Simulated scan of single mutants.
Amino acid sequence: MVDKNRVGGAGDKAGGKIKEAAGKLTGDEKLRAEGKADQVKGGVKSAVGGAADALKGK
Rank of each mutant, 00 (worst) to 15 (best):
M1Q: 12
V2S: 09
D3R: 00
D3E: 05
D3W: 00
D3M: 00
D3I: 00
K4S: 07
N5R: 14
N5M: 08
N5E: 10
R6K: 10
R6F: 01
G8E: 12
G8W: 05
G8D: 11
G8F: 05
G9W: 00
G9E: 02
G9F: 02
A10L: 13
A10E: 15
A10H: 13
G11C: 07
G11E: 12
G11Q: 12
D12P: 01
K13C: 10
A14E: 15
G15Y: 11
G15L: 15
K17W: 01
I18P: 01
K19S: 09
E20R: 15
A21M: 10
A21E: 11
A22H: 14
G23F: 06
L25N: 13
L25Y: 14
G27Y: 07
D28T: 07
K30V: 15
L31N: 10
R32G: 05
A33P: 04
E34S: 13
E34M: 12
G35W: 02
A37K: 15
D38W: 10
Q39G: 10
V40Y: 05
K41Q: 13
G42P: 02
G42Y: 01
G42K: 02
G42M: 06
G43S: 04
V44F: 07
V44A: 08
K45I: 02
K45H: 05
A47I: 04
A47H: 03
A47V: 04
A47F: 03
A47R: 04
V48K: 00
V48R: 02
V48F: 01
G49A: 01
G50I: 01
A52V: 10
A52Y: 04
D53E: 15
A54S: 06
K58E: 04
K58H: 03
K58W: 02
K58S: 03
K58D: 03
